[in-house]
Each structure stands twice: as structure tokens, then as C-alpha cells.
């Protein structure tokens, strides 16, 4: 039986599952194995290194969000002024909207495409191993290298426009990375191309965990393929969906080196996201305090959306098992 990764954060998912023997045993074991229990001291190395390298530096760095620090020299406490500046400044709204647009579009497309590829490349295909490697290849490419390839493709004199004019669609030619309308979506294309393979592999593993007898039984009962997918495959796939949603969402909201390399957030901010705005404010514009406040805001957003995702998956699961 397939069970969830990341279910840690979505206990509800499992709560509603029909109790199984294994689970009862586990509970009993946890309560009652006395002196032979796993010693707490085992968590020390992991906890210490995470606190020393991540939690402590980030927390002490977060202090700057409440200062007017330029990024160098002494800093002055300003309380919540940076946060109120963010919310009162309509310019900060652009990156926020772009982050959400890019984030949602990426999560949906990467997952739908990843799932479609995984289903399409099921066990029956003779070329499946080759094709899987092919779709996975962009995942291992350095993000910067990916950006260079695509920057070349999207150049005004580049391959994409060449193809368009060869197809007689010359009127569609444009400066993709320099277009206020298209810049953000060219970035989306690059992100999807690079990451759909990762989603695919996680879905593949999830699909392989589904016992084929289940699907066959439903087929024998005369259920349509669409019905089987919705009522059998999808609910069984929830764990993989949850991992994928979490990983793609965190990735999409925080990605910035590809954006900097492709458009630098331009033209005129048309593809600036919160992550690129944080980079620019902290390291380019001498507004470290403001940038730090933006970064904290982004963190809150990531946590809220993650919680919403986990809640949604839990709700879906309960409905499916009802």
C-alpha cells in the first residue's frame, strides 16, 4: 500500500485512511518499548548543524528587516516601517503579482505535464527507458546553462524567430525576453522545460506503486479509462502529488537565478518576482532592510501556500476515500 512522503506535515491525510494492521503495531511499539527506545541524542548532529548554519544566521539576518540598513555599515532600527512601505508602495505590487502568476502557472503546468508524461511513458512502451532519460536530462543541467541556451533561443535573431518566419508566421516575431507581455511567460517555458522531468519521475514512482490488479479489476467491472483514472489512479497517487506540489511550489516561489540570467527582471520590471526583488534590493539598490522585509514576506507566503496545498490534498483524499 502506498503511503505518503511529507505526510508528516499532513497528518490528516493518513488519519482518514482505513486503519491497517501495520499502523496499529506501530502505535503500540511507540508507546511501549521502554529503555530500548531510540535515544534522543541521535538528533543532535542534525539539529546542531541546521541551527548553526541555517536557523541562527537567518534569524539574526532577519533583524535587518526591521532596520533601514543599506547593506553596509551601521544599521538603525525602524520597526515595521519597511513592511508598511511594501504595502503602501504600488511598485512592490508588481513583483508580488508576478510571483503568484509564475508560481501558480508553474505548479499547474509542471505537474500536469509531469503526470501526463509519466502516464504516457508507462510500462507498455518499448522506448520507455530511453524516453524517460530524455525527459529527465534537462533536470541535471546547471540552471545557468539552461538559461544561456534559452536566452540564445529567444534572441531576436535566434532560433525561435527563425522558425516562426520559416513557417510564414513572421508577424509573430518579437523580442521575447524584452517584451512586457511575454517576458514572464518565456521564463515559465524555461522553468517547465527544466523541471517537468523531475515531476515525471516522482509520478512514475507513484504510478508503479499502484497495484495493477486494482486498475484491472475496475476495468473488468466495465469502468471507463477516465473513470478509472479519477477514482483509482488519482487517489492512489496522492502521496506523489503532495511531494510534487510542495517541491514545485517552493521552487517556483524562490527561483531567481534563471530570471536574472534571462531577463534580469525586465523589461522595466515586467518579470520581476519577489525573489529577484529581494536580490536587487539587498545587493544592488542599497536597500538591505527593505529587501529583508520582502524576503520575510515571501517566506510567509511560501508557508501559507504550502499549508493550503497540504490542506487541499487532505480534503481531496478524504473525499476520495469517502
Amino acid at each position: 500500500m502506498a503511503i505518503v512522503a511529507g505526510e508528516s506535515s499532513a497528518g490528516a491525510v493518513q488519519e482518514r485512511r482505513p486503519p491497517e494492521g501495520g499502523r496499529r503495531d506501530r502505535l503500540r511499539l511507540r508507546r511501549g518499548d521502554g529503555p530500548r527506545r531510540v535515544p534522543w541524542v541521535w538528533i543532535l548532529p542534525g539539529l546542531v548543524v541546521a541551527v548553526a548554519i541555517q536557523f541562527y544566521p537567518v534569524l539574526s539576518g532577519s533583524y535587518y528587516a526591521f532596520t533601514s540598513w543599506s547593506g553596509i555599515g551601521p544599521s538603525h532600527w525602524v520597526g515595521l516601517k519597511n513592511f508598511s512601505a511594501i504595502f503602501s508602495n504600488s511598485q512592490a505590487l508588481g513583483p508580488l503579482v508576478h510571483t503568484l502568476e509564475l508560481g501558480f502557472a508553474f505548479v499547474i503546468i509542471a505537474n500536469v505535464l509531469g503526470l501526463a508524461l509519466a502516464v504516457g511513458l508507462g510500462n507498455a512502451l518499448r522506448t520507455r527507458n530511453f524516453l524517460r532519460a530524455l525527459f529527465f536530462a534537462p533536470v541535471v543541467l546547471t540552471p545557468l546553462a539552461t538559461s544561456y541556451i534559452w536566452a540564445y533561443i529567444f534572441q531576436y535573431t535566434g532560433p525561435l524567430n527563425n522558425v516562426l518566419s520559416a513557417l510564414g508566421l513572421g508577424s509573430l516575431q518579437q523580442a521575447w525576453l524584452g517584451s512586457p507581455t511575454w517576458a514572464l511567460w518565456t521564463i515559465l517555458v524555461v522553468l517547465v522545460w527544466q523541471n517537468a522531468g523531475l515531476s515525471m519521475v516522482i509520478y512514475l514512482a507513484g504510478l508503479q506503486a499502484i497495484p495493477s490488479e486494482l486498475d484491472e479489476a475496475a476495468a473488468v467491472d466495465g469502468a471507463s479509462a477516465a473513470y478509472r483514472f479519477r477514482r483509482v489512479t488519482l487517489p492512489m497517487l496522492m502521496p506523489a502529488i503532495l511531494i510534487n506540489l510542495t517541491l514545485t511550489m517552493i521552487y517556483a516561489l524562490r527561483v531567481f537565478d534563471q530570471i536574472l540570467a534571462l531577463t534580469n527582471g525586465g523589461p522595466f520590471g515586467a518579470s520581476d518576482t519577489l525573489a529577484t526583488a529581494v536580490w536587487k534590493q539587498t545587493f544592488v539598490n542599497d536597500n538591505y532592510g527593505y529587501g529583508a522585509a520582502l524576503a520575510l514576506l515571501l517566506t510567509v507566503m511560501v508557508l501559507l501556500i504550502a499549508a493550503a496545498q497540504w490542506g487541499l490534498v487532505g480534503w481531496f483524499n478524504r473525499r476520495a476515500s469517502a
Partner: peptide, 13 residues
């Protein structure tokens, strides 16, 4: 920790 803004920790780190 998955969601923390790592870049804020760079200078203290």
C-alpha cells in the same frame, strides 16, 4: 526550515 529565506543568513553565516 524548507521555507526560510536563506539569503538573509549569508552575512551572519
Amino acid at each position: 526550515g524548507l521555507a526560510l529565506p536563506v539569503q538573509l543568513g549569508t552575512i551572519p553565516l
